Computed example of a mutant assay.
Amino acid sequence: MNYQYTNEFRHHLVEWFNKEKRDLPWRRTSDPYKIWVSEVMLQQTRVDTVIPYYNRFLEKYPTLQDLAYAPQEELLKMWEGLGYYSRARNLQAGVKEVVEKYNAAVPDNRHDISKLKGVGPYTAGAILSIAYKKAEHAVDGNVMRVLSRVLHIEEDIALHKTRKVFEEAVEMLIDEQHPGDFNQALMDLGAMICTPTSPKCLLCPVRDYCTAFSEGDADQLPKKSKKVKNKKVHFKVFIATDQEGRFLIEKRPSEGLLADMWQFPMIETNENSICEETFEQNYNVQIANYIDKDLLKFKHVFSHLTWEMDCIQVQAEQKMELPNDAHFQPIEQIRTLPMPVPMLKILNVLN
């Protein structure tokens, strides 16, 4: 794309964005903290899902200081249902660093902002371009898809090294007068017009500058190698009550998947396992009787694995002291704790 066409491309793209952009709450502010929150929430999550979370979150934590020193369990409860909970913990850690190291002013340069916990190249570029009007790249999946077609880039976007190709492309194309609008325009174009399948090329404001459109192979781009096959793990979940009607729950470890979230006891099943015995041994309880052997069955899909959940409800008698982070709690108390989506599904079927 020569310089003349580059100017025309960016002009038509930004003009389209200003006419057609989605009315989103984080687009009504230039506060870098609020834009930061939105960008973290939008990672791996649909816009429609994020909007109510974003509004509630900023009502609860309107300033950097409010979030920096919020209790983690309260924070996780606010994030409950959004998934990828490490995002919330990293966001809080990064915000706390801004409060303590940068006097509550989000850094306005890539060098410093990129050092913050959880702030990668995309998030850094989004904050800098939208909040601070800096001509910085912000490359996400939408941007790579759009530019792979416009510039006919055939490198595999699943490879980490390929991102550099697209970052350099944005640096070449970006509108230095309106960098935030330009970056958001690429994102919106990818979300609304230049979609993964069946791109709406005839509605595209920059189709005249798109190599893939002229070549007729837009649906063949971007090139992306297949992910590793999703692993399936089967669990028997014990919904165990004591004589007082309280439910046995436990807190997950502080590291790894769903760290620090609460759950009903889960025993991984295999051909040789007797889950009831393992449950009794692990939690120092004895199953007195079965209330419902088929309470609920469902699957929960993560990005890299699938949990197949077989839930049974039992009455249990405590024989010895419960393990650390395991407690019998009334259901009213359990509803106040941060729980991952699979556990919320179970909680919703309980009286």
Rank of each mutant, 00 (worst) to 15 (best):
E168M: 11
P222A: 01
M261V: 12
I174R: 03
V237A: 08
G190N: 01
A185G: 03
S254V: 11
M172P: 00
H234L: 08
L221F: 09
F247M: 01
W262K: 08
S225Y: 05
L173A: 08
S214G: 11
K251I: 12
D260L: 14
K223Y: 08
L257W: 13
P199F: 02
G180M: 02
E255R: 14
F247S: 00
V233E: 13
L221K: 08
F213W: 04
K229P: 04
I249Y: 05
Y209I: 02
I267S: 15
D181M: 05
F166I: 06
E244A: 06
T241I: 09
F213C: 02
Y209G: 00
Q177I: 07
M261R: 15
F264H: 11
M261P: 03
C201V: 05
F166K: 05
N230G: 00
E244S: 08
D260P: 03
M172T: 12
K226F: 11
P199G: 05
H160Q: 13
L173S: 09
L203C: 04
P265D: 11
D219Y: 05
M187V: 07
I193P: 02
E250Q: 12
C210G: 03
R207E: 13
K161S: 14
K224T: 05
S225W: 07
A185M: 00
C204Q: 09
R246I: 00
K200I: 07
V206A: 04
H234Q: 12
P205E: 06
V233I: 15
V233G: 03
K227N: 13
D217I: 15
D175M: 08
E167Q: 13
Q184T: 06
V233C: 08
T162G: 03
E176D: 07
F182E: 00
A185P: 00
A212G: 07
M172C: 08
Q220K: 11
F213Y: 13
V233W: 07
T162K: 04
P199E: 00
K251V: 10
K236G: 01
S214D: 15
Q220D: 08
N230I: 14
C201R: 01
I249D: 04
I267R: 15
K229W: 07
D217M: 11
P265F: 07
K236H: 14
V237S: 05
P253I: 12
G216L: 01
P179T: 10
G245M: 01
V233Q: 12
N183M: 03
L189S: 02
F213Q: 01
F264A: 11
A218W: 10
E168A: 14
R207S: 14
T197E: 06
A191W: 05
F166L: 05
F166T: 06
R252D: 04
P199K: 01
K164E: 12
K226M: 10
E255C: 09
L248M: 09
